[in-house]
């Protein structure tokens, strides 16, 4: 499998008062294409910091992170923005949707930055909204949506440009169980169908159940890197199919079931 991210002896320090707080202490990791991986650990373990550096939103203090063959530490702000614009997708805990934009406009935004034609943009946005089951909310504003719907819009926004890597920081932290499962199923489906690499930062047990690879961080260090053979996600899936998620949102019957065909 092709390496998509390589973390080499990564150290990240933040100034606090007269001293420094070391958030990451020599982390070494390799992520390959198509992974569905989670950085798991308690608050302050360094998972979000690692995610931010992989996402080129922050820079290493020491060591290096190679994202899609580009060294994050050596990227100019413009090059980093270019990488984020073209290859990376972000999903945030608080959704971070643009409040004055409609659902359609929020999802369309990354394509505007890519200067895609209006026709192509429309087609892509509607197609992506179909994957996440939000075609009936095209004209709604984020304030008119539930938390689960907002996060689905955020996923659509992250996926609309077909990024090679999606970074999700606590994507289910603000969601109830039913919505969390639906969001995770959606992402897992996209990962499976589009071969998009997903890296999560989470301490949510529901998310952990879906992960194909779990990297446990504690005190800025990797303490466990495992690939669970018997993921509990099957059980969670059965839970969601027992009626917790409405039929409209059921991936098997939703248009996202036709994901492969659409691509």
């Amino acid at each position: 499998m092709k390496t998509i991210v390589e973390v080499k002896n990564l150290v990240k320090k933040f100034p606090i008062g007269d001293g420094f707080f070391t958030a990451l202490k020599g982390v070494n990791l390799i992520f390959t294409e198509g992974e569905f991986t989670g950085l798991v650990g308690p608050s302050g373990s360094g998972k979000t910091t690692l995610l931010n550096i992989i996402g080129t939103l922050d820079v290493p203090t020491d060591g290096d992170v190679i994202v899609l063959s580009k060294s994050v530490g050596n990227l100019s702000p413009k090059e980093a923005a270019q990488l984020r614009k073209e290859e990376l997708g972000f999903i945030f805990q608080n959704y971070n949707l643009l409040p004055v934009y409609t659902v359609f406009e929020n999802v369309e935004f990354p394509l505007l930055l890519l200067k895609m034609s209006a026709g192509e943009r429309k087609q892509r946005v509607l197609e992506t909204l179909e994957w996440v089951g939000l075609t009936d909310k095209v004209k709604s504003r984020p304030s008119q949506l539930s938390g689960g719907e907002c996060q689905r819009v955020a996923i659509a926004r992250a996926m609309v440009k077909r990024p090679r890597l999606v970074l999700a920081d606590e994507p289910t932290a603000n969601l109830d169980a039913a919505n969390s499962h639906h969001i995770l199923q959606t992402m897992e489906k996209l990962n499976r169908e589009l071969k998009t690499t997903f890296i999560f930062a989470t301490h949510d047990e529901k998310v952990i159940g879906y992960l194909h690879r779990i990297i446990r961080l504690a005190d800025g260090k990797v303490v466990e890197d495992s690939s669970p053979l018997n993921s509990p996600k099957g059980d969670l899936k059965s839970e969601s199919s027992q009626g917790t998620i409405t039929n409209n949102n059921d991936l098997d019957s939703s248009p996202s079931g036709r994901l492969g065909g659409a691509l």
């Binding site: 702000p77 923005a81 984020r84 614009k85 990376l88 608080n94 971070n96 949707l97 990354p110």
Partner: peptide, 16 residues
């Protein structure tokens, strides 16, 4: 500010 951070995360440069 959250919106601005999001714009940067989505690929806008600071100049933009």
């Amino acid at each position: 500010q959250r919106e601005i951070g999001t714009l940067v995360a989505l690929g806008m440069t600071q100049k933009q």
